[in-house]
Design a protein around this nucleic acid. Structure first.
Length: 575
DNA sequence: ATAGGGTTAG
């Protein structure tokens, strides 16, 4: 059966033979089949001495039936006799190792393949590289790659994809260049992998051009990778361009474009595309629903979110969908629903906990957020930087200066997390709210990382509340150094001057705004009433029921005043 | 035969 000799004792199984074996071993082994006792063989006395062909056949059978331990014993016996199976059998054995997460066995297979001076072909080395990549052993993969005598497109693409997935973008791009220098032409696999490692628009445009040149733009993997990367950079027109060229549809391509709009806070367009997708006959999967939920979250569409929730029941076990659902309920202010989802979730990761903690804090339930964090510390996953950020946020909003300070100072020691700008921003906000402006400034000056516009904005906000004009001007200047066209800062500064009755300074701020050409984006709010969205923009009175709305609003304000409410004119821009 | 795309918290 195994008659074709390659080297001295190396056997080869032809492709047709492989098909026959696969078919035969897919069925349960027949009872009449003689089974070999591997334990007897392992005792070295070898009372039974199986023929080489029997060894190989048995080895092959175990590989195809994913019987890893027996296959390993068979391989061991083969190695002692200097027998090699062929590349295909070895690749099946490696699949066994991958399926069982058996790293050590995988390494043994590697050793066996290289033993006795046997030189595996490029195909088998590629399999070994991808095995190490899938085990997360990038350095091992690299060693094998470096030592191989000949590299083909698959070898290069495997490494490029590995680097892309590991977020080693520079390595991925460098390998593409090296591959091109070797005279190899990238294919659709290569392009779809390397695109994920590119963040600069000019590089993506170059790649896009090459893709069109070699005629690979119709490949759905390449297409969705292009759409995704354009969308990530906010280049939604380009993303749509690639999307619209699509002749046949593909669900992932739809998911890419819907996700792209959802991530760029263009929720209404994401929802429109979702509708079109359903009209085109596609059925949403977890990925689609996650993006749709994100769109609902961005638009605060609780009712639509609830409808999506019904579809999600199909994917009840999916962690990512549930996390998105949790966030939707939190951001839409329905903490009860969020809590129900959180409690029911079978699997919770650090994102679930952070979402819930931050959600509680953002809705003003700071104490609950801190309670939940205490519970997380004893029975949840290890908190990360974002969890701590939520905790600091809770402390800041509840005015718990001591607690916040404690968590901030001990986060490195307790959780091994170095404070980032965001943590500093939160604690500066905390100190600022408590009126400890000097301490806040001192903290900014002792920051290990450079303060950014957000940091100074936290201080500026505190200055506004505590009416410290000089410090506010200082903070505003720092913001405008980093972000010269920020309308919010100009408005804030102008408000602070107006509050201090410094009208000349107010005029000066407004002059420089005009000179630089800063314009405040018109304020906009919207509300969802019985599946209809009503949007209101500054100076836009086009709503059909505007008169009635204004009338009702003035009645409400009148009643508020009667109850003793004094309007906060701190934010009024003009005299 | 081996390599590739979309989804979650600040």
């Amino acid at each position: 059966m195994f008659c074709s000799y390659r080297k001295a004792e190396a056997y080869n199984v032809s492709f047709t033979m492989r098909a026959i074996l696969k078919r035969r071993y897919a069925a349960p082994p027949s009872l009449s089949r003689r089974r070999f006792s591997w334990s007897a063989l392992a005792s070295r006395n070898e009372p039974e001495s199986p023929s080489s062909s029997f060894l190989i056949e048995e080895f092959t059978r175990c590989c195809y039936q994913r019987e890893l331990p027996t296959a390993m014993r068979a391989m061991d016996a083969m190695q002692r006799r200097g027998i090699w199976a062929n590349s295909i059998t070895y690749s099946e054995l490696i699949k066994c190792c991958l399926a069982g997460g058996a790293v050590e066995q995988g390494k043994l297979v590697h050793k066996h393949i290289l033993s006795n001076g046997y030189q595996p072909k490029t195909f088998l080395i590629n399999v070994l590289i991808s095995m190490y990549v899938r085990f997360g052993l990038l350095e091992e993969a690299r060693k094998v790659f470096d030592l191989m005598p000949e590299r083909d497109v698959v070898s290069w693409t495997t490494m490029i994809a590995a680097y892309s997935n590991a977020k080693l973008d520079n390595m991925a791009r460098e390998f593409l260049i090296l591959m091109l220098r070797e005279g190899l032409r990238p294919n659709m696999f290569t392009y779809s992998s390397v695109l994920r490692a590119c963040v600069e628009l000019w590089i993506i445009r170059q790649l896009h051009c090459s893709i069109i040149k070699v005629g690979l733009e119709s490949d759905v993997f390449v297409r969705s990778a292009l759409i995704d990367i354009y969308a990530r950079l906010g280049e939604l027109q380009n993303a749509l361009g690639v999307f619209n060229e699509m002749a046949t549809g593909d669900l992932v391509v739809w998911n890419s474009i819907i996700g792209g709009f959802a991530q760029n806070s263009i929720g209404d367009e994401a929802l429109n595309l979702f509708r079109k997708m359903k009209m085109a006959g596609f059925v949403a999967n977890q990925s689609t629903l996650t993006s749709v939920l994100r769109a609902c979250t961005g638009l605060v569409l609780l009712e639509l979110g609830r409808q999506v929730h019904v579809h999600i029941l199909k994917f009840d076990h999916d962690l990512i969908v549930n996390n998105a659902l949790l966030d939707m309920y939190c951001k839409c202010g329905s903490l009860e629903d969020a809590n129900t989802v959180f409690t029911r979730m079978k699997e919770k990761d650090v994102i679930s906990w952070s979402t819930m903690i931050t959600g509680l804090a953002q809705s003003g339930f700071s104490q609950d957020a801190l309670e939940l964090f205490k519970f997380m510390k004893v029975s949840g996953p290890r908190p990360n930087d974002i969890t701590i950020l939520g905790v600091l946020f809770a402390c800041s909003h509840a005015g718990l200066v001591e607690d916040g300070w404690y968590y901030f100072r001990s986060m490195k020691q307790l959780f091994g997390i170095d404070p980032t700008r965001e943590h500093y921003g939160c604690i500066i906000d905390l100190l600022g709210r408590a009126g400890k402006l000097d301490e806040a400034v001192n903290l900014i000056h002792e920051m290990k990382c450079e303060p950014d516009a957000v940091t100074w904005r936290a201080l500026l906000g505190a200055c506004r509340v505590h009416r410290n004009v000089d410090l506010a001007v200082y903070a505003a200047k720092q913001i405008l150094k980093l972000d010269p066209a920020d309308p919010g800062t100009y408005i804030m500064l102008s408000n602070i001057y107006a509050n201090a009755q410094r009208w000349a300074d107010v005029a000066e701020v407004r002059r420089s705004m005009k000179a630089i050409g800063v314009r405040k984006e018109p304020g906009c709010s919207w509300i969802e009433v019985s599946k209809q969205i009503h949007a209101f923009t500054m100076r836009d009175n086009s709503h059909p029921q505007m008169d009635a709305i204004i009338r009702h609003l003035s009645e409400l304000i009148q009643r508020l005043k009667e109850e003793g409410y004094i309007p906060d004119t701190n934010f009024v821009l003009q005299d």
